[in-house]
């Protein structure tokens, strides 16, 4: 029998703990496939965040480090400076990367640290039970914005790709989604490119993945994917925000 479907080598056999319909699982798979495709499993070190993906250290088969909440880019900086020939990636949620860890994110980007950042934007604090995130949409109801996010009192969501592309340094910044097959395939290409950039020594590459949290959005998995299309993507337009090498080549 021909093998038509296989688990990537870069994933362990540990069963994922994510809720049914959560897109964290798809994103793990895409990262693992990129690592497999590039043949870098043995020289990659990943950094898990504090958030729903905290247990990623059990799921990825490469060496792993668990960082404090938001500090993954600083930990990645240390690892990369210690081992410039290793491939270092962080996997972070929106609370982790864009709230408590914003300083670490911006400064790793502006140093053009040669690392790969996978940024999972699900517009919510998933792990702690659905509080407002820096990326929660205007009007979005969460546990800590029970009347909907009121932009007059708590401000507007942070658009990470737009914000980081105001910096001169970063190599590559792209926003993708995983709510349908077409988008998943595109996300896979982007994530692979973000690793390839690091292999090529090009510098800081961040892929924002618009993700879903059916549990804390209070939706069925299908409804959550629909909401990604109808509400998330219009606010967070997909596309390449920075591709320094491509621009220089022109």
């Amino acid at each position: 029998m021909a093998v038509v479907f296989q688990k990537p080598k870069a994933l362990t056999d540990a069963p994922l703990h994510y809720c049914p319909g959560c897109t964290h699982g798809i994103i793990h798979r895409l990262v693992a496939e990129a690592i497999d495709d590039l043949g870098i499993l043995g020289k990659t070190v990943g950094i898990a965040p504090v958030g729903c993906a905290v247990m990623a250290y059990d799921y990825f088969a490469c060496d792993m480090v668990e960082a404090a909440h938001g500090r993954a880019p600083a930990v990645a900086t240390g690892l990369k400076r210690a081992m410039p020939d290793r491939i270092i990636f962080t996997y972070q949620g929106d609370g982790d990367l864009a709230s408590i860890g914003m300083a670490e994110t911006v400064h790793a980007a502006t140093r053009n640290e040669n690392i790969t950042v996978i940024f999972v934007n699900n517009a919510i604090y998933g792990m702690t039970g659905g509080q407002m995130a820096p990326t929660s949409l205007p009007g979005q109801v969460t546990q800590t914005s029970p009347y909907g996010r009121d932009v007059k009192t708590v401000g507007y969501p942070i658009k990470v790709c737009e914000l980081l592309s105001a910096l001169d340094a970063p190599e590559y910044i792209e926003r993708v989604a995983v709510n349908n097959v077409k988008n998943v395939l595109n996300a896979k290409r982007a994530i692979k490119k973000a690793f390839q950039n690091q292999i090529d020594g090009k510098g800081f590459s961040l892929i924002e993945v618009v993700s879903s949290c059916p549990t804390n959005w209070g939706m069925t998995p299908q409804k959550a994917l629909d909401w990604v299309e109808s509400d998330m993507i219009p606010y967070y337009p997909l596309g390449v925000y920075r591709d320094k090498s491509a621009k220089e080549a022109k």
Partner: peptide
């Protein structure tokens, strides 16, 4: 030698190198 953006970042960079 790296001047970090804060002491918080500095100690986490230390965490990274020590992990290695």
């Amino acid at each position: 030698f790296l001047q970090a953006e804060s002491e918080i970042s500095a100690i986490n960079m230390v965490y990274g190198v020590s992990s290695a």
